[in-house]
Design a binder for these strands. Structure first.
Length: 453
RNA sequence: GUGGCCAUAGUUCAAUGGUAGAACACUGGUCUGUGGCACCAGUUACGAGGGUUCAAUUCCCUCUGGCCACCCCA
């Protein structure tokens, strides 16, 4: 102990004299995060499942730019929505263009549909996308400024079966990942329906004006439909008496909605009607829905979960194409919040499969290392997944790595093997070893691996 | 955007107005011809800036970031 202290002090002093102060470290900016190798297997699993289901249902892959003209979102998403009013990542370029990092995927996909003349393709056009979205929101659990969405859009089809099928797809993806989800659904009808309903709401809530909180009074003026999802307890009572939009739907919207529900019944997708569901994007018309995980019972001792967090949402947006300068085109879509899906899977204890390393190539000495390098490549070409630690000299350390990787066999190439033209194969479970001809190593390993299965 | 709580090794946590410890992880060694174990050694931290003080990681302020609630949403 004493020795250590005496030794340590002078070294530190010298270091202080010589070493300049380290530059300040750089942290990620607010709401941005790294997704590390430890977490990425979950992401890969989720993305693979999304793709698989989308492709199976006939969707084609589209990528659109992360950056779009600000006008796209102002017009598409809606000027008076929260997303546009306070959550846009907007800036002006040196050339004076007003650009925005996309806050969601649908507007960009519809823009691409119009710009690329996809009206001329056989309709409907079914597209899926996946990528980063940006909202300048205050970060919280399951809410980041850069987050990832997977989405599907069906453009050019107005039949109710399409709405139902998209809901079904979102449900299947989650189900096959191991998440029991339930759908909250509503219909908000045509813009005319909404105007009429809005007026009805205003006159209804005016009667209760005295009971409304300051916050809710503001809402009454600005966006009365928002009053429906207020969390003010007094509000909840009043709300029960409030008119519901379903009762204001026109015949066509009502029929459409009924058919969507019938298809859902038929497909055994669990859903519940939510008369208070009014989505925050202006482009929705008719069907709107949100996807929630089934509430897990909170284990004793664990902190109580707050309200369930939506994993996804979507709806019909028949008016969007026209708003963006295209010809009137019906469309429906949904998106999943991948950050939230991944996070939920982890809380459920779902584990992604590890990439298996079937064999490990260990080497001793310079000659052995050179030979091992060649054998590794032979194995790769033969489709055998191999692990290595060529930078390590010690065979002990290499065996340790082999063990950690879960390799079933280790191939050892040392000086002796190089000279004899052989290789040593060690069974990692039993510890038995055998010497084989170096030229037959790949073939021997494949035989052993097959034998294992 | 509003309000509250918080910030110490890679991680999870300690202690302290007199410049910091553990566990796990990581690296190396015991042990260049054999892994799961053990033992030994080593690397790594007071988020940034300012103020009070003889002295600040500790007290105060600002900033940055995180968490929670609201707003809203994926």
């Amino acid at each position: 102990m004493i020795k250590k202290k005496e030794f340590k002090k002078p070294v530190k002093k010298d270091a202080e004299v010589v070493v300049k102060k380290a530059p300040p470290s750089i942290a990620p900016v607010r709401g941005m995060r790294d997704i590390l190798p430890a977490e990425n297997p979950w992401w890969d699993m989720v993305r693979a499942k999304c793709r698989e289901i989308a492709v199976a249902y006939g969707f084609e892959h589209i990528d659109t730019p992360v950056l779009e003209e600000t006008a796209l979102f102002v017009r598409g998403v809606g000027k008076y929505t929260d997303i546009v009013e306070k959550e846009l990542y907007s800036f002006e370029t040196l050339g004076g263009s007003k650009l925005t990092l996309r806050p969601e995927g649908t507007a960009g996909v519809m823009r691409a549909y119009i710009s690329n003349g996809m009206v001329n393709l056989p309709q409907p056009v079914k597209l899926w996308y996946e990528g980063a979205m940006f909202r300048h929101d205050r970060p919280q659990h399951g809410r980041y400024r850069q987050f990832y969405q997977f989405g599907c859009e069906v453009i050019g089809e107005d039949d109710a079966v399409t709405d139902a099928q998209l809901i079904l797809i979102s449900h299947i993806i989650l189900k096959e990942l191991g998440i029991k989800a339930t759908i909250n659904i509503n219909s908000i009808g045509t813009p005319e329906v909404r105007t009429n309903y809005r007026n009805a709401l205003i006159s209804f809530f005016r009667g209760y004006r005295a009971k409304l909180s300051e916050e809710d009074k503001k809402r009454l003026l600005r966006n009365p439909m928002r009053l429906l999802d207020s969390k003010d307890p007094a509000m909840l009572e009043i709300r029960a008496e409030a008119p519901q939009i379903v009762d204001w739907l026109d015949e066509t919207s009502k029929m459409h909605f009924m058919r969507v529900l019938e298809y859902l019944d038929e497909s055994n997708v669990p859903y519940q009607l939510d008369p208070y569901l009014v989505r925050g994007l202006d482009y929705y018309t008719g069907t709107v829905f949100e996807i929630f995980p089934e509430q897990e019972p909170v284990a004793p001792g664990m902190p109580e979960e707050a309200g369930p967090i939506a994993l996804g949402g979507g709806g019909r947006y028949d008016g969007l194409a026209e708003i963006l300068g295209g010809r009137p085109t019906p469309a429906v879509g949904f998106s999943l919040g991948l950050d939230r899906v991944v996070s939920h899977l982890k809380t459920l204890g779902v584990r992604p499969e590890k990439f298996p390393r079937e064999v490990f190539v260990a080497q001793l000495g310079e000659q052995g290392r050179k030979k091992a390098l060649a054998i590794f490549e032979e194995l790769r070409k033969a489709g055998v997944s191999a692990g290595e630690a060529f930078s390590k000299d010690s065979i002990r350390v290499q065996m340790d790595v082999a063990n950690r990787l879960g390799a079933k066999f280790a191939i050892v190439i040392g000086q002796k093997e190089v000279l004899d033209g052989t290789a040593l194969i060690r069974d990692m479970d039993s510890g038995t070893q055998e010497i084989v001809d170096a030229s037959k190593i790949v073939q021997e390993i494949k035989k052993k691996l097959e034998h294992q299965v």
